[in-house]
Each structure stands twice: as C-alpha cells, then as structure tokens.
Write a protein that binds this DNA or RNA. Sequence first.
DNA 1: ATTGCGCGGTTCAAATTTGAACAGCATCGC
DNA 2: GCGATGCTGTTCAAATTTGAACCGCGCAAT
Lengths: 159, 159
Amino acid sequence: MGHTRWLDDEEMRTWMAFIPASNLVARELDQQLKEESGLSHLQYEILIHLNAAETGALRMTELAERLINSKSGLTYQVGQMEKAGLVQRRQCEWSRSGVLAAITDEGRAALERAAPGHVAKVREVLIDVLTPEERKAIADGLGRVRDRLIAEKDGDTCW
Amino acid sequence: MGHTRWLDDEEMRTWMAFIPASNLVARELDQQLKEESGLSHLQYEILIHLNAAETGALRMTELAERLINSKSGLTYQVGQMEKAGLVQRRQCEWSRSGVLAAITDEGRAALERAAPGHVAKVREVLIDVLTPEERKAIADGLGRVRDRLIAEKDGDTCW
DNA sequence: ATTGCGCGGTTCAAATTTGAACAGCATCGC
DNA sequence: GCGATGCTGTTCAAATTTGAACCGCGCAAT
C-alpha cells in the first residue's frame, strides 16, 4: 500500500452526500418521533424489532446487535422503556442467564400510534425524494455495505 | 391524507439498507479514527472544514450548521480541541459578538496524520463497495435528500 | 466434582449530547 | 438617542452513550 488513493470528484460527491444525508435524516426522524409520540428513534426501533418477533420478545444481545448499539446502552434504554411500561423483562426459558425484552400491549399501542407519522416522515425526507432507480441502487449498494460490515463483526477479517 | 401509505417491499428494502448502513459506517469510522489518531469523527470533520476555509477559520454557528450538531455541542467540542491545541478561538473582526474557530498548525498536523487512514477506511467500507452506477445514484439521490433538509432548515416550509 | 473459561447482562464512572435559559452585541424603528 | 428584538455563543442541568470492570451461569476438560 503505497500512497493514499484519495477520493476523486465523483467519489467525493458520493461521500459528501452520504454523510450529511445520514445525519440530517437521523436528526429529523428522531425529532419528529419525540415530538409526536415521545419516543426516541432508538426506542421506536426497539419496539419495531420486538413487535416483529413472533413471540414479541428478543434477547438483549440480539437486540443490541440489530440496533447497532452498545450492550450497556441497550440495558439503559430497555430500563427506561420498562419504567414507561412499553416493554417488560422476562427470563429466557432455555438459558437461565439470558434476558428477554418483551413488548407489552402498551408498547404495541405506542407503536401503532407512532407508526403513521413516522412512515410519513420517512417518505417525506427520503423515500419520496428518490427515483425508483435511485432507490434500487441504494437498496443494493448500501445493502451490500451493511452486510459486509455485519459480516466483519462476526467472522472478523475474512480477508 | 387519508390512510397511511405504508412502504412497499422495494421501498422497505431501501429503508432497511439506508438506516443500518448509516449507523454501521458512522460507528466504524468513528472507531477507526479514535484508535488511529485519537480524534472523534466530529473532531476530524471540524478540522476538515476549518482547513478547507481559506482563512483556516469559521464562525461557530457556521460550523454547527455544516456539521449538523447543536450549538452547545460544538461549543463543548471546540473547547476540548482548544485544550488539545488543535484549534484556537479568535474574535470575529467585523462582529464583536462573533467567535472564530481557527485551525492551528498542530491541528493541520493531526489532520494530515489522520487523513490517509480515514480515507482508506471510507473506501473500504463504502466507496469501493459500490459500483460507479450506485455511487452516482447515491450522490444524486442522497444529495437531493440533503439539500432539501438543509433548505427546510432555512426557509422552513417552502410548501 | 472441580477448576477454568466464555457468554450474557449489568453496573459504574466518564465523556458526550441536547435543549432551555442566559449574557453580550447589533440593528432597526420610533 | 433609546428601547425592542434578534443574533451569537456560552452555561447549565439532565439525558444519553460508551467502554471497562464486574457478577452469575453454563459448559468443557480434567
């Protein structure tokens, strides 16, 4: 690896679109969710994931990995949400040391209340701004980016 | 606005690629920068922006807007960086209440030290994973997303 | 059985981030 | 000239986030 391969103009355009768009979209959605439903984006996503699970529950670690958050951060947030009655901690059946976070009826209700506004905002700031071709390119390209980074976390350095 | 227009499959794929990719890339870069140069991604970007300015200095608010961070957050970080000798506060010439953050020689040195590894990582996790077509779509599409959100902040509700 | 290690979660202190309240300067209309 | 109003940046307390240290359990080798 000799000298650095700097980004050319086209690559820089990509980078300078990706980073600010990420930050702005994240900020916008977080704010909208908080205002409209009192949930942070992280809390919303926790509910989404739990709700999507057939049993309505997931292990803490599983959740942390999916949400790309530290374990301790998740412990904290689940604690907050438990206080708020949105989730409930249960013990994992087959592993005494495991902990399940389970969505409550109240959690589902909060989700249903928050979802329409959230989806509308997602459309407004991202989905409806993109052409179908762009959406496909993003789904494919960033999907690959995502998968590689996730894979790296597990196997670590497949190269 | 009758019922919610939920995301269809293709749109959901886009969304479920965008969010995790954003988070993972941000985390990866932040970590790499911290390890390799002791700078957080935010600090790195502050240096980049200051360095790009002809005078090597920018107003605090200007910087906060570009970096998509709260004013108070920027005050804090610039404080940290000032302690570390990477930047220096100066008074804005034409406005007694304005404050300029100026990059120092030490700051430039830190930037030069950090840049090669950072760019390499950006290539590794994002740029080189994408095809040229995908890069173009992302530059165009997310560029538009970015611009709309920035415009909204200024004029606010152009609709 | 027993020792030792590894995993799953939590605790803890420290760093960061945020929004609201505040202080100084600027500017515009009266 | 003088007060009203609006910026700019900072301060402050509260919320969140992070990584390292830690605790209890399970599991494998001895």
